[in-house]
Design a protein around this nucleic acid. Structure first.
Length: 545
RNA sequence: GGCCCCAUCGUCUAGGUAGGUCUAGGACACCGGGUUUUCAACCCGGCAACAGGGGUUCGAAUCCCCUUGGGGCUACCA
């Protein structure tokens, strides 16, 4: 039986790194008909936000990653929120204390910081100096009443090297002298990560732990804990890290950082206005610019939008908002530090599940290649079933503020069909807006007008096209195509000379979906109206010049 | 600073665990051409890599060591 888990800390939205970890654990469970658990590690009362858990849940669901045990679905090993498991942790904590495998500490953070600095000055790793005599529960109680912080440390007791048997990296050996007595219970009574994780993995019968390389150094500590408590050690697989274009681990801090830089580089910034848009105070904006604090995501997004800056997508929801498909994300995520060992890249979920294997996890860090992601999305837009694409597109339109949302289902289907080569939904939406603009509200691109309408008899041809469109008995893409091609032939012109004036007339610029589809979707009435407006608007200008 | 991990085209990678079949394969990007009603998409072709230095061996991308480079961790965060 294979049991895996994804154990996020609810500090914000699900980001690329977390999503990949979740996916790999999910794939392994699926492949082996095992169990996949979602466990929320909310032991950091300072950093957790109440909405984050729900956000993570939403994003996992959007990706299609469902859990067998966890929040909202329950399961035999709950509760699945660590904040609700404190009794359990306390029980094992007491056991370690009773066995003299752990002891109380009363240091203040400042004292610890001093010790640490001293160690660094001596070019040494900081090792906590264990007292000769372990403190008692009475000592702890006394210290507490006197206002000292009380923590519990695990007494690292090993004279042998600690060997982590990692699936990806093989045997990794740590000298016991390298591992300091670490805190397992914080002064606020919550367990630390290393402790809660070990207890829960054991109690939830987790067999395989796939996590980022950043946890490799935690593993010896966790193994020591497992040994002291008589627990089994699960199979560990520490994945390579995903690196960002700028170097370093891909981090959710990149978005606020990009915004901060953009604001710093812009000449005229209005703090009040920014604060207002983000629904925060000017002081908060100022503090953000100084790098002291970070506003929440809606505020960041609002400010970026106002300044016209595109922030790098980091969170799963960012990719959704940029018009990526969940299928794209899952497929691309799977290839971040894993591959099937052959030339296959575009793979369905089922294919991913059957070919997934821990032995094929990559050792090398991988850079997150946005261009390749875009190519994947283009591919998925082209090959996804129309019903599925439509359903995703509707979800997308709901989240962005777009006039396209007013389209009925049939129109949306046509739009998708006409945009088969698009890279993202954002591109499709942008190219379709003209369909939902008022006829007299088209924004004419000056360059397009000059090049297409005011030259080469553009307006004259447009007038002929207009009359032919009006005279057509049927109105469909096919009939429109025949008419335009026929006209081009008749006039001994390239189709472009005939089609481009029409294009500019209906959408204001030279870029649109295929012209036959565009005209058809817009409908005869609106098309004629727009042509008339165009002819009227630019005929005069033509004479002047 | 200390500890740990990693090293093949610009990028992601196959090949490395059984050294010869690798004049190193694929994908993205890029360049050139084709198709074409615009932007795309699409089709064809091209460019492009075993970080450096020592070993081991008849033979090394593959094994060992060093150097260099990149990354992670070094919290009462996970």
């Amino acid at each position: 039986m294979v049991v895996t888990r994804f154990a996020p800390s609810p500090t914000g939205y699900l980001h690329i790194g977390g999503a990949r970890t979740a996916l790999f654990n999910w794939l392994l469970a699926k492949k082996n008909n095992g169990t996949f658990i979602l466990r929320i590690e909310d032991t950091d009362t300072k950093r957790n936000t109440p909405t984050a858990t729900q956000q993570v849940i939403n994003d996992l669901r959007w990706l299609g990653i469902e859990w067998d045990e966890g929040p909202e679905v329950g399961g035999p090993n709950g509760p699945y929120l660590q904040s609700q498991r404190r009794d359990i942790y306390d029980k094992y904590m007491k056991q370690l204390l009773d066995d003299k495998k752990a002891y109380y500490c009363f240091d203040t953070p400042e004292q610890l910081q001093q010790m640490r600095e001293k160690a660094i000055a001596k070019k040494e790793n900081f090792i906590y100096p264990r007292p000769n005599q372990f403190t008692t529960a009475e000592d702890a109680e006394k210290a507490r009443t006197q206002g000292h912080p009380v923590t519990v440390r695990f007494a690292v007791d090993s004279d042998e090297p600690i060997v982590v048997n990692d699936v990806v990296r093989g045997k990794v050996t740590f000298a016991p002298t390298e591992i300091s007595d670490f805190i397992i219970k914080k002064s606020d009574g919550f367990p630390t990560y290393n402790f809660a994780c070990v207890i829960d993995d054991e109690l939830m019968k987790v067999t395989h732990v796939i996590r980022g390389q950043e946890h490799l150094m935690n593993t010896p500590s966790q193994q020591l804990l497992q040994k002291a408590l008589g627990f089994k050690t699960p199979t560990y697989a520490h994945m390579s890290v995903t690196i960002s274009e700028g170097g370093g681990k891909l981090s959710k801090r990149e978005r606020p950082k990009a915004l901060r830089n953009a604001i710093a580089n812009s000449s005229d910034i209005n703090l009040e206005k920014l604060a207002d848009l983000g629904n925060i105070t000017a002081e908060q904006v100022d503090s953000f610019l100084k790098g002291k604090t970070t506003p929440d995501m809606p505020a960041i997004d609002a400010m970026a939008k106002h300044l016209g800056i595109k922030l790098p997508e980091i969170n799963i929801v960012d990719f959704f908002k940029s018009g990526y498909l969940p299928e794209t994300m899952v497929n691309f995520l799977a290839l971040l530090g894993w591959n099937p060992g052959n030339d296959r890249e575009i793979m369905t979920i089922d294919e991913l599940i059957t070919s997934f294997d821990l032995s094929r996890l990559t050792k090398t860090n991988s850079l997150f290649d946005r261009k390749k992601l875009l190519a994947f999305n283009t591919e998925y837009i082209r090959m996804l079933k129309p019903e599925k694409l439509l359903s995703h597109f509707k979800d997308y339109l709901k989240t962005i503020d777009s006039s396209v949302i007013s389209a009925d289902e049939k129109m949306l289907e046509e739009i998708l069909k006409a945009n088969a080569g698009a890279k993202t939904f954002a591109g499709i939406e942008q190219k379709s807006r003209f369909l939902f603009t008022e006829n007299d509200n088209i924004q004419y691109d000056e360059k397009a007008v000059n090049k297409v309408l005011l030259k080469n008899d553009g307006l004259a041809i447009l007038e002929i096209v207009r009359d032919k469109l009006e005279a057509m008995e049927q109105f469909s893409s096919e009939v429109i195509e025949n008419m335009l091609r026929g006209l081009a032939e008749e006039k001994q012109l390239g189709l472009g000379k005939v089609a481009q004036p029409l294009r500019v007339a209906i959408c204001g610029n030279t870029v649109s979906p295929p012209i036959f589809d565009s005209v058809n979707m817009l409908g005869r009435e609106n098309t004629l109206a727009r042509i008339d407006i165009t002819l009227k608007k630019f005929a005069q200008k033509n004479k002047e010049s």
